[in-house]
């Protein structure tokens, strides 16, 4: 049994509850338990690209320093903080590398952290849960714990931007990733390739420029359907929201009839590994995935 210090981030407590609960359940089954770190704050969701803005680097550094303390009370825990959200993953990784390489940035940030009697010692690594599954748990073990192979599920693995970009944050090859595909395959699903696997969904433009997100989502979903997918698997709560909610709104406008349900990779794992269906919180989804799962006799 290995325990990991787990940083949830804001969205997993609000509209991606199914992502968190399914991840916690499967992590226990796989003896790589995710234990929520105490007293965490929002990472800021996007890291600043301005070299002169230290303010926006404080929140991620505080998370790293608190997680470093959390690791000490865990069982067999490596010096790693694990995230589920790909935006948290990218923000924490980029800031971590940035301050590790630049003492002139870390010093004033640590001066700020002193108020809370904290200090970041540059001793942590950031890992996405997918990396833990691939590198520490291994697909073999996952395959062995599958009780109900996802037969009939034709999944398009959509990476979005933040799992693969920028270089400091990528968890796999940025032009030809395989981690989501390998995972879905070990769960018994069929893999559907679409060239738009990392075509940006429009991200935060959903707030004030919805038309951009609509066009992106339309392209991504259409390409997935043309290639024969009946579901999409993602790792980012914002990609999930955009793909899910915008398909539904396009259906209301009469633009689309056939909708692809969106799954977090951990939800697929929970189904295949025989966890109770209610932990997936499918009621939060705009497109109900239960219809497809019932048709395929997976629930």
């Amino acid at each position: 049994m290995v325990q990991y210090s787990y940083f949830p981030g804001c969205n997993l407590k609000t509209n991606a509850k199914g992502f968190e609960k399914s991840a916690l359940a499967v992590s226990k089954q796989l003896d790589a338990e995710l234990v929520e770190m105490p007293n965490w704050n929002c990472c800021g969701t996007v890291h600043t690209l301005a070299s002169d803005n230290l303010m926006k680097r404080i929140a991620p550094t505080r998370i790293l320093s608190r997680s470093s303390k959390h690791v000490e009370i865990l069982e067999n825990s490596p010096k790693e903080v694990v995230t589920l959200c790909s935006m948290c993953n990218s923000t924490l990784k980029v800031v971590n590398k940035d301050i590790k390489n630049d003492e002139s940035k870390l010093e004033p940030i640590n001066f700020q952290l002193e108020v809370d009697e904290e200090e970041y010692q540059k001793d942590m690594e950031v890992k996405h849960f997918l990396e833990i599954l691939r590198d520490s748990v291994g697909y073999e073990k996952i395959e062995k714990s599958v009780k109900k192979p996802l037969k009939g599920l034709k999944v398009f693995c959509y990476y979005g931007c933040m799992l693969l970009h920028p270089d400091e944050a990528k968890i796999d090859d940025e032009e030809m990733p395989a981690v989501l595909e390998d995972l879905s395959e070990s769960l018994g699903a069929e893999i559907i390739f679409s060239p738009l696997f990392k075509h940006c969904c429009g991200s935060y433009h959903i707030v004030d420029q919805e038309d951009i997100v609509n066009t992106q989502v339309q392209k991504i979903i259409q390409s997935a359907k043309q290639n024969g997918a009946n579901a999409v698997v993602v790792a980012c709560p914002l990609c999930a929201y955009n793909l899910d909610a915008q398909q539904k709104s396009m259906e209301k406008q009469g633009l689309d009839k056939e909708l692809l349900p969106i799954f977090y990779f951990t939800q697929l794992m929970a189904i295949a590994m025989g966890e109770a269906s209610n932990i997936n919180h499918f009621e939060e989804h705009h497109i109900n995935p239960e219809k497809l799962l019932k048709k395929l006799k997976l629930i």
Partner: peptide, 16 residues
């Protein structure tokens, strides 16, 4: 829209 949008969208939008 402030009520329905996920906080990840709002925070990142306002940061940018």
């Amino acid at each position: 829209s402030l009520e329905k949008l996920p906080n990840i969208a709002l925070v990142s939008n306002f940061r940018k």
